[in-house]
Structures are given as C-alpha cells and as structure tokens.
Design a protein around this nucleic acid. Structure first.
Lengths: 230, 230
DNA sequence: CAAATAGGCGACAGTGCTGTTCACTTGTCG
DNA sequence: CGACAAGTGAACAGCACTGTCGCCTATTTG
C-alpha cells in the first residue's frame, strides 16, 4: 500500500489491517486459490514473516480476509452488527437499503467480488452473516403491506444481490471517468426501481403466466411462454 | 472422469474434450488461478504430456476451457451459433429463453460458475459472445410491445443472468435430492416470472419512486425511499 | 534509564508446479 | 506392412510459494 520506509513502526492492529486490505485486493483479482502469501505481504509492504505472525497459515489469512470483506459489507448495509437487535423493530426501508448497497458496490467493487466469489464457492452460503441479515430484511418486507403479495424473499434476495454486485464490474469496464460511473450507477438504480415497481413484461400480454402464478406449485400451464421447470 | 483403463484409445477430439471437461470442473472449484495442469490431467485420466500436446501452456488451456464453457452456454440458450443469423428475425420468446437458461443452469451449475467468474474477472465482459447475444435479445424484447415501456435492457441483462446463474449454487447447497432441486428450480422460475410480471413493490405505496421514474436522468426526487445515486 | 517483551525481518529447507525433452508403445490409415 | 500420429512415462532445470527459525530492534514497563 505504501513505499516501504525501512521498517514498519510497531503497530499490530494497523499491520493486521493493511495485510487484510492487501489480501482483499488480491482476492478480488485472483480468487481464493490464486493469492499467495508472498504476494499479499509484498503488496502490503510487510515482511512475509510478519504476515505469518498475524495469521498462522495462508488458509487462515484468506478466511480472515473473506470474513473481513463480509463484515464491511454488513456494516455498509446495516450499520454496526452489535446494535442490530435494537433496530429490528423499525419499518423496513427496502428501497433505501438497496440504494445504500448499490452505492457501496459501486464504490467497492473488489470487496463485492470477494464476497460473491466466496458465496459462489461456499458449500453453505446461508451461514454468511450478511446474507442472513439481507434475506431476513426482505422476508420482513415481503410480509409487510408495502410488498406485492406472493414475493419469495429468498429467491428475490439472490436476484437482488447478484445484480447489485455484478453491475459495478460491468460498469467499471465501461466507464473511465467518475462522471461516467455515476451515470451508470444511476441507470442501475433506476432500472432496479422500475423493475421493482412494474416488472418487465406487459402483464396483459401474458395471460398464461398470470394464470400459472395464480395457482402456485401446480404443474405448469401449457403455455408456450412459460418455462418448464421440470 | 473414469478409472484409467490402461491406455486411452486414440481419439484426439475426445481427448481434448475430456481435458476441457476436467479443466471446467476444477475451474469451477478453484477459479482460474487455482487450477494446475497436473490436477487437470490427473482428473481427466490423461498423461500430463498429452495435455501439453493439446494445449501449449497452462494459460491457453484455461482460456480454452473458459471459451468452451461460454460456447456451451451459448448453445443451450440460443442453439448453434452458425445459424443464429437466420433466426434473428422471428419473435423474441423471452420467457421461453429464460426458462431454458434456468433449466440449463440448474443442470450445469459448475459451467455457469466458470462463466460468471470469468466475467467477474474480465476487463471487458462485453466481448463475450454469449453475453452479447443475450443482451441483444433483451434489447429486441424491450423494443417490442410485449415489454413494459422504459426497460433498460443492459441493466436487466445483468440482473437476470446474475440471478439465473447464482441461484443453482444456492439450490445445490440446500437440496440433497433431485426432487428437492426440482422444487427449488420451480421456485426460482416462479419468482422470476412474478417479478417480471408485477415487480415487488406495491406501486401505490411509493408515489415518490413513481414520480422519479417518470422523469428519467433528472436529479433524484427528495423522497426518503429513493436511493441517492451520487 | 535499562531490561524485557513482542512486532517485524531475512534466510533456509522442502515441496509442487511448469514447461521441455526424449525414448517408448500402440492405434490408424494409406 | 510401414509410416505416422496419439498417447505414455520419466526425468530435468527453474521457479514460486509455504512454513519455520533465529536474529534485530522499537516500544513498554519497572
């Protein structure tokens, strides 16, 4: 992160942080199996031995970096995890949360990439704290009278998060300037809202689908437009 | 792939295929930087030297495997790339394509993971043929009178594909049985359709958002519910 | 201020992977 | 049948990375 000035001033906390940050950056670039402790130490401007003092093995460093990313994500979306219990009761501001998350994703695409990749590789994504909280929020929202009836919160969580975290990567590749990225962030936010408000299909044009959705879990109606699920 | 039976029958095409398949599997597990040619050769039941005969370097093998995954995806969604030009004219069956893709993703989650990771790491995702075709289809759909007005096809493509490809991973982790997975596939398809038809917010409850969407690209309305994009 | 502590550093052995070469076996095709 | 191409096995140098050890020195503390 900085040009090595002979010897790092003794400060375990800061050192640990700088190592985690470097690990996060490389994790986003190469994936969990692709980062070497040597690289991380070099990027962090720290001796490899120092890194081993903070994290016993490469494996544990990676894990710590992933958890660190997840925690940052959590804080960006929901604030301090310690006080989360007290705030559970208040009204769910679903649009606001989506906005905060979208903005954060735009500002920290690497972090989101790390988190996504971890979830993609995890045998049990449901154990991730951020995921649990997000999904829980959507469930509470779906149960409220602000939501359209029939929302499947779990599925919607995957769709939302996947889009929110993938979009910035797309955007980064297409906008060189900050201004351009802001425009792209706005486009995403708008389309998210539009989709949430009105969907994408003109409902009148698809009576078959409407029919199918009216009797959930029943065998698919014989409409040419409805995808067969089995 | 199979228990090595002495010596592989001479068949370059099949050998190449088996190597690519093994590479794909490992790619899905470990990411591009995480697979070694030794591992691939071992899993494919092929001599390391043989692998080097088909692919000059590790790097080229990885690239070939990624392209191979992208191509399979393309075929699953759109059929033979060679004949794609002739079929461009016909009506866009957006729901049908989504259904096919969803099913394919459920059956081949590793493939989708490979593709996703590649896109996540690529500097320019727009060069991927599958992406281009998918996005193009949505654009044609958005321009038709089957779509709600104001759809941003590019954003919607990201949202759709991200969801479609991430869901199976979630599902795999949560359903042990084929039956369970079928149910989860159905849940996803239903929620996709529901979201496409009606969105998730009760439009009447969010006049601020409706207002904002009515004048696109203007500075955000001062609604507490609308996410600030800048 | 001096000693003790612990954060940080450099060097080392061990391991696994890459890319290459070479001698060898065995299907397949003209 | 003979030539050639596909597949095997082994060996090698070169490299990068892991994990460990002992030394150095900034900070703390008595």
């Amino acid at each position: 992160m900085e040009t090595r000035a002979r010897r790092r001033p003794r400060d375990p906390e800061a050192t640990r942080e700088v190592i985690l940050e470097a690990a996060g950056t490389l994790l986003a670039k190469d994936g969990p199996e692709g980062v070497s402790l040597s690289e991380v130490a070099h990027l962090a401007g720290v001796n490899r031995g120092t890194a081993y003092q903070h994290f016993e093995t490469r494996e544990k460093l990676i894990q710590a970096a992933v958890d660190w990313a997840s925690d940052k994500l959590f804080r960006a979306a929901f604030g301090d995890p310690a006080t989360i219990g007290e705030r559970r009761i208040e009204e769910v501001d679903i649009a606001g949360m989506t906005g905060r998350l979208t903005q954060f994703a735009m500002d920290n695409p690497e972090l989101c990439r790390v988190w996504l990749m971890q979830v993609l590789s995890s045998a049990d994504p449901a154990r991730d704290p951020f995921w649990r909280e997000y999904c829980g929020s959507l469930e509470r929202f779906a149960a409220s009278d602000l939501a359209v009836p029939g929302v499947d919160a779990e599925v919607l969580s995957v769709i939302n998060l996947a889009g929110i975290f993938l979009w910035p990567i797309w955007a980064r590749a297409h906008a060189e300037t900050d201004r351009g990225r802001t425009v792209l962030a706005r486009r995403f936010a708008d389309e998210c809202l539009r989709l949430s408000m009105y969907g994408s299909l003109r409902a009148e044009a698809y009576p078959g689908i409407a029919e199918r959705l009216r009797r959930p879990r029943a065998p698919a109606a014989a409409s040419s437009a409805s995808p067969a699920a089995d």
